[in-house]
Computed example of a mutant assay.
Amino acid sequence: MRTGEETCNGPAGGSGPRGGPSAHGPAPQGAAVPVPGACRTPSDAEITVTAEGLPPWLSPVARAADTLEPQQLSSFLPPESGRGRQSAVLILFGEGAAGPELLLMERSGTLRSHAGQPAFPGGSLDPEDGDPATTGPLRAALREAEEETGLDPSGVQLFGVLPRLYIPVSQFIVTPVLGWWHTPSPVGAVDLAETARVFTVPVADLTDPANRANAVHPRGHLGPAFTVEGALVWGFTAGLIDRILHHAGWERPWDRNRKLPLDWHA
């Protein structure tokens, strides 16, 4: 995620309206998706968010996205002050040789924050992305994914939006955007100063108990982790994957006593 400074001085996070189209689930085609607790402007153009036409195996994720509450995803929620860096990530599901898969990238080891961590493509909202309360996070997720991985956004169907979450260490207020990669395009690290590599991970590997553990930070923090594709996925990204697997009904029993220590650079 880039560390831009764009913010939105709206009402307190988490206190916005939740009527009409779901604030964090699939919306009718052409509908604006409200993000609770951010400011609004009338100038946002429409962007399509629909769960129509998804492959059947993605239906559990779409159903979960339509009902999940923020507390079901994380204990770190946007501050009531509303202060934070508005941002978005793209949780992109595709289908590869090994079946359903997720697109991830590994951040450059020279970055100031989250260096070397596997992550979803994403970053701060730019002014041209539009209203953070509606379509801004959708555009930002696609734009950042294109800038970081080179994917063609026209091959992506957005089918849901999860509740906004918070990363205290970097003060990001993150909107996770769900996508179906119906027409895959070539991807790779566009800027090696920002991205070390881009890779896909089969969902079957993420649900394999042999690849699951709890990462232990030197400060004592404990959280889900995955050892896949030569990478240790932990932190915010692993937490989201863990919750999606759980609420989609894909989780398999795994040894929660298995712990992997992180070093002080994490």
Rank of each mutant, 00 (worst) to 15 (best):
R2L: 05
E5Q: 15
T7Q: 12
A12I: 03
P17W: 12
S22T: 14
A27H: 00
P28T: 09
P28A: 12
Q29P: 05
G30K: 10
A32M: 09
V35T: 13
V35N: 05
P36W: 02
R40N: 07
T41P: 02
T41R: 14
A45P: 03
I47M: 14
I47Y: 11
T48D: 15
T48K: 04
V49A: 04
V49E: 01
T50I: 06
A51Y: 03
G53W: 06
L58E: 05
S59R: 15
P60L: 12
V61H: 04
A64W: 04
D66W: 02
L68I: 14
L68C: 04
P70F: 08
Q71I: 00
Q72D: 14
Q72E: 15
Q72I: 00
Q72H: 11
L73I: 08
L77T: 13
P79R: 10
P79S: 07
E80G: 13
S81C: 10
G82H: 06
R83G: 06
A88V: 07
V89K: 01
I91C: 11
F93T: 09
F93C: 12
G96A: 09
G99V: 11
E101D: 15
L104I: 05
T110D: 14
R112N: 12
S113P: 00
A115C: 08
A119Y: 08
F120T: 01
F120V: 05
G122P: 03
G122E: 13
G122M: 06
L125T: 03
D126T: 08
D126Q: 14
D126M: 14
T134P: 01
P137E: 06
A140G: 03
R143T: 03
E144D: 05
E144M: 13
E144A: 15
A145H: 01
E147Q: 14
E148H: 03
G150E: 10
L151R: 01
P153F: 02
S154A: 15
S154I: 00
G155L: 07
G155K: 05
G160D: 02
V161P: 01
L162Y: 02
R164K: 14
R164F: 00
L165Q: 13
P168G: 05
S170Q: 07
S170R: 07
Q171T: 13
I173R: 05
I173P: 00
P176W: 04
S185H: 08
A189Q: 09
A193I: 00
E194Y: 11
E194F: 12
T195K: 04
F199D: 06
P202G: 07
V203N: 02
A204L: 11
P209M: 07
P209G: 04
A210H: 06
N214H: 11
A215N: 04
P218D: 06
P218L: 11
P218H: 11
P218V: 13
R219L: 12
H221A: 13
G223M: 11
F226W: 06
F226P: 02
G230K: 05
G230A: 11
G230L: 10
A231M: 10
A231W: 00
W234C: 09
G235D: 08
G235I: 02
L240M: 15
I244Q: 08
L245Y: 02
L245Q: 04
H247T: 06
H247G: 07
R252H: 10
R252S: 12
P253T: 10
R256S: 14
L260S: 01
L262H: 08
W264C: 08
W264H: 13
H265R: 14
